[in-house]
Amino acid sequence: MMSNKPDFNIIDHTADLGIKVRGADLKDLFEKAARSMIYIMIRGNPVGKTRRLKLSVTGEDLAGLMVRWLGEVLYLFEGENEVLTKVRVESISSTHLDSTLETVPYKPELHEILCEIKAVTYHQSEVKKKTTTGRPVSFLIYR
C-alpha cells in the first residue's frame, strides 16, 4: 500500500483502466508499475505483521513479463489477502525478474479499497525505451 502517489498517468479507456509509467531503468520501471497499481487499488495504514517474500516471475518478453509481474502482485491481494507495502526488483532481464516484497494482511477496517482490479491484461501492453534516461510503459488493467 502506497501512501505517496507514484509517478504514473491514467490512460483513458471506456470500460477498463490503463496506466503509463516511466522509470529510470527497468528495475525502477517494474517497481513503479507495481506501486502504481496498488496506489490505484487501495489506501490505508501499513499496520499488521509484515511478511517478507521473494517473488520470481518469467514472461515471454518484456511486455509479457510486466503483465505477469503485475498479475502476481494483484494475486497477492486477491488470492492471499496481502497488501503490498514495499517492493524491490533485485535483478531483471527481458524475460525474468527476481524481487523482494513486503506485505501486510488486508484488514477491511484499516484498508479502503478504492478500485477493484480483476486482472492485468495483454491489451495494449508495451514496454519500450523512449529516451536515453527513461523507459515508458503502457498497459491495460481490466476492471
Binding site: A63, Y122, H123
Partner: peptide
C-alpha cells in the same frame, strides 16, 4: 490466457494475432 499466450510465444501454436489479448 497465460497458457495459450505461452504456447504461442514458444512456437507450439502458430497464430498471427493482431492483439495479444486474443490469445
Amino acid at each position: 490466457l497465460k497458457q495459450m499466450s505461452m504456447s504461442i510465444s514458444d512456437g507450439k501454436e502458430q497464430f498471427v494475432l493482431p492483439d495479444r489479448q486474443l490469445a
